[in-house]
């Protein structure tokens, strides 16, 4: 359960998103534009837009 603290660039608004103890593939929200982002890499930190909701998503 490797985690990292730092910041990454939001691919939607290009603002810096501060991250604390995040894991690879964790979903975070951009504090500037509100976009859902996925931490696709923790070394270095890389953020991408989270996958869009699909029809059979659920629990």
């Amino acid at each position: 359960m490797n985690t990292v603290t730092g910041s990454g660039e939001c691919p939607e608004c290009f603002d810096q998103v501060e991250l604390k103890d995040v894991m690879q593939n964790e979903i975070v929200q951009c504090s500037s534009c509100g976009a859902d982002l996925e931490v696709t890499s923790i070394d270095p930190i890389k953020l991408e837009l989270a996958p869009e909701e699909e029809e059979d998503w659920g629990e």
Binding site: M1, M23, Q24, N25, E26, I27, E38, A50, P51
Partner: peptide, 17 residues
């Protein structure tokens, strides 16, 4: 098996750890 790591997955992982 996971699709996204959200608060629930982190809590489960922490409990297992």
């Amino acid at each position: 098996i996971y699709s996204r790591i959200r608060a629930e997955e982190k809590l489960l992982l922490q409990a297992l750890k």
